[in-house]
Each structure stands twice: as structure tokens, then as C-alpha cells.
């Protein structure tokens, strides 16, 4: 059997997830390279190929003209995997979705340059069918490896649907709130091993929300125990999960 052809594509993103991949450099990743044939990878090589077995897509879908490119990838690829928060949920790019003035904010006098034009940031799955997702900002390279190894063997990977608190408590970490900090671990989807709280920093829900996040309770707890103002508590989850919030629907996502 010939090796599966694998390609990496990026849309609106920082390419940090690709960097994360090249950071592998360990035996596991080198072993993976023995089993796949990378045909496109912008951060490390340039080449194009017609058929792709697995297409990895990074970045959000934020320009209508990207739809065609995504559809082309979908046509060429057997399996499409969205990886990284931007591709999976729109990620941090969606922070701009309720800010009509975002271009002025970021680019100032250059705001009207045509190449800066974009619409709201959306997940890749809003444009094409996505078969699997690797969440996180950046995505976890070991989770990536685990998912790829499953797919190479025709198996379906399992991703938990419980919050980060579960993993954090299992790790017997001191709760960020008990350290006078805040945290979003209660509504954030786990699978990361609760690394951030273990490092003494709050969870920002970069992997997205669990299925039924209690947003009202979150706001309350962020104010009462996280010492946030009402405005700040209300907006806190806009960083990584703007598209998943209950008010996102009004933005046309």
C-alpha cells in the first residue's frame, strides 16, 4: 500500500499550529513521517499534488473568496481535518465579529486597503464538510498525532465532551479561583489535560465550549469570585469562543 498523501493548508490564522507541528522534532513525529507522504506544507516546503488523502486545514474562513479554495480542497481530499481553534470554531479571529470598526482599530489609516477586506470569521465547517477536528490554540501536537494515527488505521478518535475542571481536578491542581485568579475551565471543552491551570494560568477555553455551557453562571462567578466588572465578565468568552456564545447567532454565524 502506498503512503497516504497528506497536505496542509492555511487560511486566516497565525500559522502557529503548523509551527507547532514542525516543533515536534521527536521520535514520534519522525516515526509518523515514515507512514505519510507530505505533498503540501507551506511552512516547510512548496509542492502541489492533485489527489490528497488527508487535508489538514488551519485558520478560519473569513473571506467569501476563500470558499472556492476550500471547496477545491474538499474535492481533492478524502478526509478533511480542521486543526487549531481558528479552523474549528473561528477561534480568536472571531473576536472581531461584533466590531464593525475592527479595521480602523487594527490598521488605522490603512483600513480601506482592498486586501484587508474580510467578513466575519467562521469555522471551516461553515464552508465545507469537515470530517475531524483538532481543537486548541495552538492545537496539541500529541493529540494531533493521536488523531492521525487513528485515521491512518481507519479508526475514529475519541474526544471528550466534559469540561476542563474534570481534568484539572483529576490532576489535583489548586483551583485558579482559590488563588484569587479567574478561569473558564468550567465551560471549556477538555482534552488538553488542563495544562494551563497546572502552569498557574487560567483556562481561556481555547478548545471551545462543552455542549451546554452555563454562560449566565459563568458571568456570575467571574464577577463574584474572579473580581471582574460586569462588562468584563460579560465579554470574557469572546476571546476564543465568540462564535460559540449564545449571542453569536445574532451575528449571522
Amino acid at each position: 500500500m502506498s503512503k497516504p498523501k497528506v497536505a496542509f493548508f492555511d487560511f486566516t490564522c497565525c500559522e502557529g499550529c503548523q509551527i507547532e507541528l514542525t516543533n515536534f522534532g521527536d521520535t514520534n513525529f519522525l516515526e509518523l513521517l515514515n507512514h505519510i507522504d507530505i505533498v503540501e506544507f507551506r511552512e516547510a516546503m512548496t509542492e502541489t499534488s492533485d489527489h490528497i488523502d488527508i487535508a489538514f486545514i488551519e485558520g478560519s474562513f473569513s473571506r467569501e473568496e476563500d470558499r472556492k479554495r476550500l471547496e477545491k480542497i474538499r474535492e481533492r481530499a478524502g478526509v478533511v481535518i480542521a486543526y487549531g481553534a481558528c479552523a474549528v470554531t473561528g477561534g480568536i479571529n472571531a473576536l472581531k465579529n461584533d466590531r464593525p470598526d475592527y479595521k480602523q482599530c487594527v490598521y488605522g489609516k490603512d483600513a480601506e486597503m482592498p486586501h484587508l477586506d474580510s467578513q466575519i470569521a467562521r469555522p471551516i465547517s461553515d464552508a465545507i464538510k469537515v470530517d475531524f477536528e483538532v481543537s486548541g490554540c495552538p492545537m496539541d501536537k500529541y493529540e494531533f498525532l493521536d488523531i492521525v494515527s487513528h485515521l491512518l488505521h481507519g479508526k475514529t478518535p475519541v474526544v471528550p465532551n466534559y469540561p476542563v475542571c474534570v481534568e484539572c481536578k483529576r490532576n489535583e491542581q489548586i483551583c485558579r479561583f482559590d488563588e484569587g485568579d479567574y478561569c473558564l475551565g468550567m465551560i471549556a471543552k477538555a482534552g488538553c489535560g488542563a495544562k494551563c491551570p497546572a502552569d498557574g494560568i487560567p483556562c481561556e477555553a481555547c478548545r471551545g465550549f462543552i455542549d451546554s455551557p452555563n454562560e449566565a453562571a459563568l458571568k456570575k462567578v467571574l464577577m463574584e469570585r474572579g473580581n471582574m466588572s460586569e462588562k468584563w465578565a460579560e465579554k470574557k468568552t469572546k476571546m476564543f469562543t465568540a462564535n460559540l456564545r449564545s449571542d453569536a447567532k445574532t451575528l449571522g454565524v
Binding site: Y162, C165, K169, R170, M186, I187, N214, A216
Partner: peptide, 13 residues
């Protein structure tokens, strides 16, 4: 249960 996050911390500990 109005403010419950369904996070299971009460069970875990």
C-alpha cells in the same frame, strides 16, 4: 442547580 456548570468537580473530589 441553576448555576451548575455540570463540571463534576463535586463528584471528582
Amino acid at each position: 442547580a441553576e448555576d451548575c456548570f455540570s463540571c463534576g468537580s463535586c463528584n471528582t473530589v
